[in-house]
Design a protein around this nucleic acid. Structure first.
Lengths: 173, 173
DNA sequence: TACCAATAGTAGGACGTCCTACTTTTACTT
DNA sequence: AAGTAAAAGTAGGACGTCCTACTATTGGTA
C-alpha cells in the first residue's frame, strides 16, 4: 500500500499496546484481522480479475446468475443472495449491463420486478474469470485445506450470530 | 441489508453449487466468508461509533495517535501502521482535522513531512468511542475467546503469506 | 556543486458500499 | 371498492479504498 512490508505485524503490535493501555480484548485483534484480510483478498481477487474487466463484486453477481436455473433472477433476490443493499445491486447490474454481460428484462407478471439475465458474453466472461481466480487461489494463501475449512467455520458462526441467516426448516440444499 | 434474514446460508449454498458445477474449492467459500464477515463487523462498528461522530477507519487512526509516544506521527507512518494507501491517510486526516480531533503540524527538520497530532478533544472522543465499541464487543459475537484467538491466528497466517509484514530480527514487541 | 532519483503528501477520479428519499406497482384490510 | 401499507427499483449523496499523476523537498552521486 505504501512501500516495503513492515518488519513486524502492526496488528499484533496494536493488540499489545491495547492490552497494556486499555485492557484485554481479543475481539479487537480479531476484528482488525478480518478487516485487513478482507482488503488483501479483495485486492488479490480484483487484481486477477482486472485483465478480464471485472471486479470481485461483479464476478460474484455473474456467478450467481450463471447458477440460476433460468439464468436470470430478480434484482431483489440477487441482493438477498449476495447480501447487498438494493442500491448496490442497481450499481453492479448497471455496470455489468453496460458491458453487455447481463441484461435487464421485465418480469412477466409483476411489473415492479426487474429480472437480470446473464448473456452469452457474460457466460464466456465468467468462465475465463473463474480460471483466473482459481489460478491464484482467490488470493488466499498460507492456509492448509483444513485451516481454510476452519476459517470458514469460524466466520460462519460470526455471520450466524449477527443474524445474517437463520437455519431454516429442512434444507440447506 | 435488504429485509429479513434468509432461512439458509447463502454462502454455504453458493459453495455447494460451486462444487457441483465447477469443482471443489475450499478457498472460494473462505474468501466469501471473509468478505461478508468484514462487512458485518464494519457495519456493527460504524453503527456503534456513529453517535460519536466517528467511523471505524477514523477511530483506528485516533487510537494509533493516542498510542504514539509524542501523541503524533508522520502521515507516512500512519499509513504503514494502518496499512493504508497514502491518499487514504490524507482522506482520514482531513476529516479528523475538520472535526478538531487531530491537527497537522510541520515536521521540525523535514519539510516534506507532516505530523499529525491528536488533540484534547480527540482524546476525549477516543475514550467515549472505545467504551461504545467495547460495549458491543466490536461487533464480534458468536465465538468463544478461544475461537476468537484462533480466528486471529488463521488470519495472521493469511496476512503473512500475502507479504503484509515480515517477522523482523528480534522483536514483535 | 549540480543533477537526478527517491520520498512525503495531495488532487482528481473510479468503485463499491451504505443511507435516505422517491416512484411505481401490488397486496391487504376494512 | 377504496384506501393504505408493503414491496421493487432507482436517484443522489456520503465514505473509504485504491490508482495515477503532480508538487515540493531531500538525499546521493558524478
Amino acid at each position: 500500500m505504501t512501500s516495503r512490508p513492515l518488519p513486524f505485524d502492526p496488528i499484533d503490535r496494536a493488540a499489545q499496546l491495547w492490552e497494556e493501555r486499555i485492557g484485554p480484548s481479543s475481539a479487537m485483534a480479531a476484528v482488525t484481522n478480518v478487516m485487513r484480510a478482507q482488503q488483501i483478498l479483495q485486492s488479490a481477487a480484483d487484481g486477477a480479475l482486472r485483465p478480464h474487466g471485472l471486479t470481485f463484486a461483479r464476478y460474484e453477481a455473474l456467478v450467481l446468475l450463471y447458477f440460476a436455473r433460468q439464468s436470470s433472477l430478480p434484482m431483489r433476490v440477487m441482493g438477498q443472495r449476495l447480501q447487498l443493499h438494493p442500491t448496490s445491486v442497481t450499481n453492479i447490474v448497471d455496470r455489468l449491463e453496460a458491458d453487455g454481460l447481463v441484461k435487464r428484462t421485465p418480469h412477466p407478471t409483476d411489473r415492479r420486478t426487474t429480472l437480470v439475465e446473464i448473456t452469452d458474453s457474460g457466460r464466456d466472461r465468467r468462465a475465463s474469470a473463474t480460471d483466473a481466480l482459481m489460478a491464484v487461489q482467490f488470493g488466499l494463501r498460507g492456509l492448509t485445506d483444513r485451516q481454510t475449512a476452519q476459517l470458514t467455520e469460524l466466520l460462519t458462526k460470526v455471520r450466524r450470530a449477527a443474524g445474517d441467516f437463520v437455519d431454516g426448516p429442512t434444507e440447506t440444499l
